[in-house]
Design a protein around this nucleic acid. Structure first.
Length: 421
RNA sequence: GGAGAGGUCGCCUAGUGGCCUAGGGCGGCGGUUUGCUAAACCGCUAUAUGGGUAAUACCGUAUCGAGAGUUCAAAUCUCUCCCUCUCCGCCA
């Protein structure tokens, strides 16, 4: 969330940010609420001061073994008034909170203004493959090779659940290990294996709640949610902590399964591996000093890109426009892999800088040398998401006979297997 | 799941209704002393928030795991919840 004082002092900037996102939130009304909150606070705090002083006097009277009845009777009324005002403050505070938790982050100045159509392609890498035959899509390829079953997934769980088997399951495991090794050994991230169920507080800390509750799987008997991304547990590792300055940046990479209800998104895009309820992902998360956050975003993007470069898959990078970035992000790059069988670019990674937006919610700070604690900046990005990566591998590395050449970098992770057939 | 013990300032700990404005120790920071180090001594030591200021200063308020209650007054009493530890049960 944004700092309420910042909103007060930068009203126009906040309004502009919301407008550029194509959203509508009445900031003036919000600030009026805030003003009445502060007025009430001043009032009730003056009364509390009076009460505290009276307490000292009552203590003194008791010590002198006199009867403080007169004072006590007087304070009864004051305490009652305090209780009433406290209640009012609480009510206003709740209204303020309700709004401040849904005010989005302010998009960085570098972003193109507009909706998804304004996203800017900032880089293309690799060459789209050419085939001497008609390339098949991943569904056809996977079913024929019996490495992924869409039908069995649907039978045991429901539509848009998938099951990997044989070399498909092996490929999935190989990719996870390959990516984790790259990020830990070469890029210096610390590996995390987080819980896949988290509490409401954690979901709120990273910004999924309260806005997106209907997109989450939620347990019926306990206030726990299945994580939609490892970002949630991993970012919350340091919730309510003050980190030492010389420990920054803190960089974590985590494998997790991710669970998304994807309510309301049906149709063409949901076929096959493109949009599923449960998928695997290797995530990158950073906690950094504020002045370094945009440089760190570029580095994080490079770390994710290297996965695709080592696998030799063609991709492009989009800088998302103000209307297309997520609620908590100030800046975001999407990496899209080309899939020749589907003939589409598929998003496999979103690398975002959240500035202090998540840190303020989750209360993650650091102590600058000789200074007061400040909020860190948080970043994260997929490094990368598996299903669409698999789509791209199958479709880019397919042969005329329907077999799949294993990308060189993966061969050691596949026990030396060079072709899936 | 059951029984017990706990959760107080960065860490350890004192505190069973008003002398708590949370005391002491450790650590940390600054100073005195000193050829240098150490020791000793002195001082400081959190966070949030409201007011105030050019900015400091300053003045309030809140915070003893979280929330609710009792009371003029709660770290302290009552209730609910969370977490940690020990033991028992169950179990991959």
């Amino acid at each position: 969330m944004l700092d309420i004082k910042f909103i007060r002092d930068n009203k126009d900037l906040v309004k502009e940010g919301i407008k550029n996102r194509g959203q509508k939130i009445n900031i003036d009304e919000f600030l009026d609420l805030d003003e009445s909150r502060r007025k009430l606070l001043t009032e009730v705090e003056a009364l509390k001061n009076q009460r505290n002083k009276a307490n000292d006097e009552i203590s003194a009277i008791i010590k002198e073994k006199k009867n403080p009845k007169e004072f006590i009777d007087k304070m009864k009324g004051v305490s009652q008034k305090i209780a009433e005002l406290d209640k009012k403050v609480e009510e206003v505070q709740q209204k303020v909170d309700k709004i401040i938790y849904i005010i989005p982050n302010i998009p960085d100045k570098s972003l193109p203004i507009g909706g998804a159509e304004s996203n800017k392609i900032v880089k293309s890498w690799g060459k789209n493959p050419t085939f001497s035959f008609n390339p098949k899509n991943h569904i056809e390829l996977a079913e024929k090779l019996k490495i992924i079953s869409f039908g069995i997934g649907a039978k045991i769980s429901g539509s848009n659940f998938i099951l990997y088997m044989g070399q498909g399951a092996r490929l999935e495991r190989a990719l996870i290990n390959f990516m984790l090794d790259l990020h830990t050994k070469k890029h210096g991230y610390t590996e995390i294996f987080p819980p896949f169920l988290v509490n409401r507080r954690s979901m709120t800390g990273t910004g999924q709640l309260p806005k997106l509750e209907e997109d989450m799987y939620k347990l019926k008997d306990e206030d726990l949610f299945l994580i939609p991304t490892a970002e949630v547990p991993v970012t919350n590792i340091h919730a309510n902590e003050t980190l030492e300055e010389d420990k920054l940046p803190v960089c974590y990479t985590a494998y997790s399964a991710c669970f998304r209800r994807e309510a309301g998104s049906y149709g063409k895009e949901t076929k096959g591996l493109i949009r599923v309820h449960q998928f695997n992902k290797v995530e990158l998360v950073k906690f950094v000093k504020p002045e370094t956050s945009y440089d760190e975003l570029e580095k994080l993007l490079k770390d994710a890109e290297e996965v695709l470069q080592l696998l030799n898959l063609p991709y492009r990078i989009l800088m998302l426009a103000t209307g297309d970035i997520s609620f908590a992000a100030a800046k975001c790059y999407d990496i899209e892999l080309y899939a020749p069988g589907t003939d589409a670019y598929l998003e496999v990674s979103s690398c975002s800088c959240f500035t202090d937006f998540q840190a303020r919610r989750a209360n993650i700070r650091y102590r600058p040398k000789n200074g007061k604690p400040e909020y860190v900046h948080t970043l994260n990005g997929s490094g990368v998401a598996l299903p669409r990566l698999v789509v791209s591998i199958l479709e880019n590395y397919q042969n005329a006979d329907g077999s799949i050449t294993v990308p060189k970098a993966l061969v050691p992770y596949m026990d030396g297997l060079e072709v899936i057939k």
